[in-house]
Design a protein around this nucleic acid. Sequence first.
RNA 1: GCCGGGGUGGGGUAGCGGUAUCCUUGGGGACUGUGGAUCCCUUGACCCGGGUUCGAAUCCCGGCCCCGGCCCCA
Length: 417
Amino acid sequence: MIQRPRGTRDFGPVEMAKRRKVESAMREACAVFGFGEVVTPTFEHAELFTLRSGQNVVDEMYVFRDKGDREMALRPEITASVVRFYVNEMSNFPKPLKLYYVGNCFRYENPQSGRYREFFQLGAELIGTKNPESDAEVIALAVNCIRSAGLENFVVRVGHIGILKAMVNKEIGDEKLAGEVLHMIDKEDWDAMGEMFDARALPRQLFDKIAAIADMKGELELLNNLDQSEATGYLQELFGVLKLYGIEDCLIDMGIVRGLDYYTGMVFEIDAPRLGAEKQIMGGGSYTLSELFGGEPVFSTGFAIGIDRVVLALEAEREIAVPAQLDAYVVPAKDDMRKYAFGIVARLRSQGLRADVDLMRRSMSKNLKYASSVNARYAVIVGKEEMAKRMVTLRDMKSGEQRQVMADDIASEIRKS
RNA sequence: GCCGGGGUGGGGUAGCGGUAUCCUUGGGGACUGUGGAUCCCUUGACCCGGGUUCGAAUCCCGGCCCCGGCCCCA
């Protein structure tokens, strides 16, 4: 027997119904915000991803050489592809450009709860503008996606890496060292950072200042404790717009560093607290990527939502309700009614109902049992007596009530309920 | 890459040195025009590969996969 590759999943009909429901709700949110869908290739030149990402991402990429000896990679994320697409073909589209995508991504990691080697993301990029209102727009979309998916318990944290990045770069000078410090901030590894500061004889004052800023997590008012700067003013303005959008429960978290390579300003994350270790369901921020791929510098803001994690978080709250798979199951009472039954089911289907008919030549008793076990809403029983009157017996599978209706009226009768 | 805990029919389980239990599900029948009840029949499993042994689902080693955690991240 051939097993499914490690870290991948098969999704059955019931699970897919739930996933599609969640996905459609988030797609609709994107559409409502004026974002248009794009689809990019599942694999790209490996270089597209190695250019912008650090060694970490490269190590966990699925890379292979194709038959033309090109180095290709399964996409570990989709933002890079969208930006490439933008640079290649959309750079003179009217701004702001609003794009969203849904797709599978691949990372060679060790699977655990909420982490898979093939996973699914929905993301959006707002290209061509950088100001508090465009960042707020993107945050509002992310929050609306999560909300319309039906999730209730989640935490939005917004930060700005400009402050720390500028401070660290300025005070430390050495670019590589500064990068390491930012990394430690991201991990909140104060011990390691302290040791490093001692070893390099860096001023203790700077350490305290960095730690104090990175530790600022909470309400917007926290910013009042910080020296007024471009970044604090930016965030205050951003929160003001969010409020106008009806989003008031965002927290400040100046400790978010995220990837640290390409994010330049606002950064934000959303957690679903009940998820455990892998509780982050979304990450995003503003960046400038296009010049990396040979385009003009363009400011963008984007995010990516982990669909798998959203589904997990939703199911931790309550079961995702999906409609019954079948509206009607047509059962012939006797063998000589079978042809009539096919005609009935064909008509129901053409009227847009989810309808099915016995294909196993089963007895009426077995057919009703089957209809029950697949959760059909109605059994449409066709027999000799009914056929003579161009009627059928419509049986409500839940209540057991049944009545005769004209064959022409089945769909409208079912739609009534 | 590292650390725990696991892998017995489709799902859930018992057995833990003598080739497998029970429940459920699937198919058929009792029931030839009325289901979710009962009864009967039937399909179907010891993750893979080595080793120890007269004999391995059971013990040992390696691998694969699953669950959870670290790292990293969605």
